[in-house]
Amino acid sequence: MSKENKKPKAGKTSAPGAAGIDIGISKSDREAIAAGLSRLLADEYTLYLKTHNFHWNVTGPMFNTLHLMFETQYTEAALAVDLVAERIRALGFPAPGTYAQYAKLSSIEEDEGVPAAMDMVKKLVKGHEACAKTARSVFPLADKASDEPTADLLTQRLQLHEKTAWMLRSLLE
């Protein structure tokens, strides 16, 4: 009998079932990374919502510049939340997806009312810095587990948030 035709021994399977994930990262490490990514997802989504809100409601002499800038930023953020959520799912855990969950997990506060244009910019700087800090806090977990896909995702998010915070801060000078 050729090797290809051999049946697995009783009690063994050739591949883990849906309940078993065998990607070289322990369940406890995957769980810790997913929890960190859930905090990042909450920050990313809260920042997305804040940016979209400011896009709709910005006024003043810099209206066109800020309106277009905020649109670019919330469009990018909409794609980012999907990437973070999908990584959580790939690690075998449900991604948070409700406002209540995000409110508990996010380090970014919601705003009441409509701030002045430059206050919007200041609040978005803080939001991007918060996302960068959250992403950075997950790095040791990914590094410990040799989770390169998560490390890559975190690097991309850090690059974007640090650059965007810098660009927004430049408007305040």
Rank of each mutant, 00 (worst) to 15 (best):
L49C: 07
T134Y: 10
K104Q: 13
Y74H: 09
P8N: 00
A103S: 07
K12I: 11
T98I: 07
A151E: 15
M1V: 12
R30I: 09
E31A: 15
Y102R: 03
V138M: 05
E162Y: 03
R169Q: 15
P8M: 00
D147A: 04
S106L: 00
L37T: 08
V114Y: 05
A117D: 13
M1N: 11
A132E: 14
H128F: 12
K123N: 15
L172C: 07
R136Y: 07
T13H: 04
L158Y: 12
A78F: 14
H161Q: 13
G113A: 04
N5E: 13
A100F: 05
A80S: 11
L68W: 01
E4V: 07
K133H: 12
S26D: 08
S137V: 02
L171T: 07
H161L: 03
T150C: 08
A78S: 15
M62S: 05
A35T: 15
K50H: 06
P94L: 08
Q156R: 14
A10Y: 02
M1A: 14
A15M: 12
E44N: 07
F63N: 01
E86C: 11
Q101D: 13
K9T: 01
M118T: 05
T150I: 08
G92I: 09
T164G: 02
I33L: 09
P115I: 01
G127A: 06
W56I: 08
D22K: 06
A100V: 11
A135T: 08
A142W: 06
Y102H: 09
G97M: 06
V125S: 04
K122N: 07
F54W: 08
V125N: 06
L154Y: 08
W166K: 12
L171H: 15
